[in-house]
Design a protein around this nucleic acid. Structure first.
Lengths: 186, 186
DNA sequence: GTCTATAATTTGATAGAC
DNA sequence: GTCTATCAAATTATAGAC
């Protein structure tokens, strides 16, 4: 892997584990094996490197969600597949966790890819819920955008509950609770 | 206010705004107006002070939730009142945000009050959902614990969506989406 | 109890040799 | 492109005077 690649990948890991405020250039250098000079040659500084890392993580997250949401199945089945997909629950969401970082929220540049990713996910799910309403799988009383927000929030909040308790169980419970509420009557 | 009080209150604010990793003793001293010596006289260090601050925030959050959940109304009405209560949405949850802090999660002492608070909230809501099932306000097909986990997760995740977009609208949408799913048929 | 002084380490970056 | 040297400021304390 090239030096800039190694810097980005190490930064991605550290941002996931420790957030922006908790990640120092020194830690990135140690993990990547690069020297001080290399980092400042390829990137303007901590924020520039973090931006490259966040953009890549956002792209990956979107592609992986699309892989499931654009797959086979009825709307309910695709939502279920998304909610039940394997996740490293205790590590949390590499994008969502950034919203709790004061310096990410303070910088429009750093926040933009986070916002765009979660917004895309909500829109994607809203379309699927609408599809389900039209097909009669979901009640017409549901609102696509609102239901989609609830689905994304349940996932993001599920990580919070799991990390608080140190176990994925609470995440799974929240997902099962939501699926029971969404489940079509037979 | 006494010096220890001012130290705790300043730490509470900073933990809410910046998390544990992002909060320095220096910032606490500046905000509280106390000197270096005072802080280390009354507390063993950063972690000890943070623990006192987190415990107090946890107590307050619990009391304020109980004020609504133990209030009047049917089970659905009490859940709705809790979800719709006024919140400083863009500031996020002062307890939930700590789960994204690597040093809080790494310390059993710091994590304990966070875990206990969210756990208490889930149990409290689970009891209310059970009550609603028995009274026929919620379908018997719902599971109390799972539905409660979904409710708490929606709130916690709602903060994530709101902070990502820089607007409370997404939080409100997630709450409305959940209430539509929970709403008793007339 | 509170204050100032001191200190070892880390942070985030620049300079300049190679 | 990569390296080491250097730097001012911040971090998380401890020491000891008052």
């Amino acid at each position: 892997m090239s030096t800039p690649e190694r810097l980005i990948e190490s930064t991605r890991e550290l941002l996931w584990e420790r957030g922006y405020v908790g990640t120092s250039p020194k830690a990135v250098l140690e993990r990547s094996g690069a020297g001080q000079g290399s980092m400042y040659h390829h990137f303007k500084g901590k924020q520039d490197l973090a931006l490259a890392a966040i953009r890549r993580t956002a792209e990956e997250m979107r592609a992986s969600a699309e892989g499931i949401l654009g797959g086979p199945g009825t709307p309910y089945e695709r939502v279920e597949a998304y909610l039940r997909r394997e996740r490293d629950v205790l590590r949390g969401c590499p994008i969502g966790r950034l919203t709790m970082d004061p310096e990410v929220i303070a910088s429009d540049d750093l926040r933009a890819p986070v916002d765009e990713t979660l917004d895309w996910l909500r829109e994607r799910l809203a379309g699927i819920v609408e599809e389900g309403r039209e097909q009669g799988e979901f009640p017409l009383s549901l609102d696509g955008e609102e239901t989609a927000a609830t689905i994304v929030a349940t996932v993001q909040g599920g990580y919070v509950l799991a990390r608080a308790s140190g176990s994925p169980a609470a995440f799974d419970a929240a997902v099962r609770g939501l699926l029971a509420l969404l489940r079509p009557a037979r």
